[in-house]
Design a protein around this nucleic acid. Structure first.
Lengths: 238, 238
DNA sequence: GGGTTATGGATAGTGGCACTACCCGCTATC
DNA sequence: GATAGCGGGTAGTGCCACTATCCATAACCC
């Protein structure tokens, strides 16, 4: 097929497809003459994957490029590709994140949180390297909780870790059914990214359900004139 | 305190604080003279909350404005505020999301996914309105899975739902310890947003652990020269 | 075979968003 | 009284995911 049909099939505009090719997300079409190329089913799959990672996964184009480059590199071990892939999915709290009170305590809170993360990992027996970005991501989250005065929320950490382990088991059921490296890696990427979207949506639903049961008598969420919340401005708290 | 100290305490630049005030996220300081104002501890808390929702929660400024406006509106019931808050956290798949093949099937896949979501909700006995955005969010995710050729992943849906229910229980333990409306609502918001970040980070860690156990003998994640993945370009798949 | 449409390739521009710079006249502080 | 900080406003910045435009050529359609 040519680019027009690829565009029609996937709903991605032609210029956008060209853009993805330029960015290295999508391999160029196979040239049949100096200025004519054809695209195969692999291109279509790849394109849909890109859109999934972009729209549902919320990854940015550059990150997708890195993930796909790792996936396409046959020299990388499964473990390493999975490492790259999952690393890219964790929001990259660049360097100086958090409030970082310059004179008070630069990041003593963060350091304490890191420690707690280490304890958790040890308690769980997880095999995780010292500079795995997930450690920092979790520590930043815990530190942020402290920062907003909700450090107690961390008490549910173990319940969350239980849930995460159940999810990992479920993911494994899916991923490990494939034997070939490529299919396996793709499943892992999909599982990680879309799995996050899945759990997030499900959490939303369970929260709505809980809220309905507890704080509202008969009315259902969004049945009446619920939400809406006029043009969001003019807050007047405290 | 004046704006400079507020800035120093939270690490947020003064112009940014002014920007938040302009956007209605943060109430203005109390004027003591025509051009002099003081800020209290409530401002500091609010500011930290804004940064948490922004940096860790990934909400955009406008969405934060809506959430806070709802939180600050004493006329809104707990259930409604929670509805607004959790709604804003679900990525707003605007309208025409997904691939949307224009001639093939406009969104038959999406419709089928919606149906499956309905069945799940019924099966679970969740009390959720028909136009709750979470339904769509979940349906979009399922449809996307189909689109990338991984519809089978939806088989783990029930396992995910189990996990989501456990998490909801844990959240409840935390939220319901507060009785006053305001504290309760804030806990709910925090729990929803930061809880997502928490579970996402924990999932990352469990995946790294699983990956290490399964696909690598002794080496630990990121111990050696793992990731890195040079300038992401020049992919050559298929 | 001649006109319309689509294509590959490239450069430049757009729109959204979260800030950030700059300026003014005034005020707190040393 | 000098210096630094402040409230308030407008305009600009940097990043990012596209999108527009152009060109010469190729495909398709009668």
């Amino acid at each position: 097929m040519r680019i027009g049909e690829l565009s029609r099939r996937t709903g991605v505009p032609v210029p956008t497809i060209k853009y993805y090719v330029r960015e290295g997300l999508l391999p160029a079409g196979l040239l049949t003459s100096p200025n004519q190329a054809t695209y195969g089913e692999a291109h279509e799959r790849r394109l849909r994957l890109i859109r999934a990672l972009l729209d549902v996964g919320g990854l940015k184009v550059a990150a997708i490029g890195e993930v796909l480059a790792a996936v396409d590199d046959p020299d990388k071990s499964v473990h390493k590709v999975l490492g790259v892939a999952t690393d890219l999915l964790v929001p990259r709290y660049a360097e100086g994140e958090q409030d970082a009170a310059p004179d008070d305590a630069p990041d003593a809170v963060l350091e304490a949180a890191r420690e707690r993360v280490g304890e958790l990992i040890e308690r769980r027996g997880w095999r995780i390297g010292d500079d795995c970005p997930g450690r920092k991501a979790l520590a930043v989250t815990l530190a942020t909780l402290e920062g907003v005065g909700h450090g107690e929320f961390a008490e549910v950490l173990d319940a969350y870790a239980d849930a995460a382990e159940s999810l990992a088991l479920a993911d494994l059921d899916y991923v490990a059914t494939r034997k070939g490296r490529d299919g396996l890696v793709e499943r892992a990427v999909i599982g990680t990214v879309l799995g996050n979207a899945l759990i997030s949506a499900l959490r939303h639903l369970t929260h709505v359900d809980r809220s309905a049961r507890l704080y509202e008598s008969g009315e259902l969420h969004r049945d009446a004139s619920a939400a809406g919340a006029g043009p969001g401005a003019g807050a007047a708290p405290e």
